[in-house]
Write a protein that binds this DNA or RNA. Structure first.
Lengths: 201, 201
DNA sequence: TGCGCGATATATCGATTCGATATATCGTGG
DNA sequence: CCACGATATATCGAATCGATATATCGCGCA
């Protein structure tokens, strides 16, 4: 959420849609997580509600309050929330404090689960090249270790369905590992290229 | 848990270990889920605590209460819980009601997430062949649909890391689909073989 | 013209889950 | 003799989920 808001102000519903794109339908977050999380972030000062509407494509015919409507409750709500032809929306903007928190979360080595990895990868362009490489290497180490555990034959007897499941899981991990290796190779190549360019310039 | 207990009585810690084997370290359940879940299942009558010890390898030197110890609180606890050289353990046995619930859960088409699928596959040997095939076909349909959504190009511009993530996800889904197709082919072949055998006998 | 439907949008509830922590026992090795 | 790690049960607070409630808007269609 902080990553998305660091690009531009957005409202809850859009955040959810974007996060579902990044994380997939699987791993996606629910409204029951989203809105409380927004409230927590606002309470902690990482984000703040914006009254102004810098948001996306606004359909023509938007209602714009023309002032001198005080006392009118509906008008007051229209002034506080953004109306764009849809339901009233609450948009949020990231604060400096939020930006600091975002950088911190992006850099911390903890949170090695699939979800955190997918999320961090989607925003790792905000990391400096060495940090990015360290992030990918950390993932590689995790997968290597996981693969090692998955490769060793089962202790006890298992039926053929479970065996197939375990074998497939090991293959999937290998697949993930190959992918990370590719990302790392690309990253190294690019960083080398940058350095060479810098030296020759 | 019901599936594991339908094989033999087990205690909580062992259930967790077995489930972690099946589900992987990822997707594994925590103690904070395990023990409350056991309590719920016992409350609902699906499982019951066993005083007797039919459990695994018991180290020599086990303390066996020799009766005529009533009044002794420690002895009473020893009678209620099993001591096997480790800490006192509470073993559970599945009831007939629990067996019915297990069959119901195994058959119900809902719960399509990765976790439920892995779990059901590990116990699908208890399903009848048509039910097993239906279960696999359901999974196939889900993955096909997911792949379709993942294959269609992104609407908006995305950075190369996110694009790589999305591409990798689509490949993984394809990989999963290939695996399911293989399982289905095996299943069909076996069921055909069974029928032919039955017809020729 | 009006009316229902699906998409957009915010919010909350109860049940469940997680990660951390507390507690205790036993076997092993130093 | 005692520290440590594996075994084992249990609970707490915070976060998450899936379901549900509510409301608005645009579109199609009778």
């Amino acid at each position: 959420m902080l990553g998305l808001l660091s690009e531009q102000p957005r409202h809850g519903y859009e955040l959810k849609k974007r996060l579902s794109e990044i994380l997939g339908p699987l791993w996606g977050i629910s409204f029951g997580s989203l809105y409380p999380a927004l409230a927590r972030l606002e309470r902690s000062g990482a984000i703040e509600e914006v009254d102004d509407d810098d948001l996306g494509p606004v359909p023509s015919g938007e209602f714009v309050p023309t002032g001198s409507l005080k006392g009118d409750l509906a008008a007051a709500r229209r002034r506080r929330r953004v109306r764009t032809g849809r339901r009233t929306r609450k948009a949020y903007r990231i604060t400096d404090q939020g930006r600091a928190l975002f950088r911190e979360l992006l850099n911390e080595p903890a949170g090695d689960d699939e979800r955190a990895f997918a999320l961090k990868l989607s925003f790792c362009r905000y990391l400096d090249p060495p940090g990015r490489l360290a992030f990918l290497e950390r993932r590689r180490a995790l997968l290597t270790q996981r693969l090692l555990a998955e490769r060793k034959p089962a202790t006890r007897a298992i039926d053929r369905y479970t065996r197939s499941l375990l074998e497939h899981r090991a293959r999937s991990t290998q697949h993930d590992l190959d992918w990370i290796d590719e990302l790392i190779a690309q990253e190294r190549a690019e960083q080398l290229g940058d350095r060479t360019e810098g030296a020759s310039a």
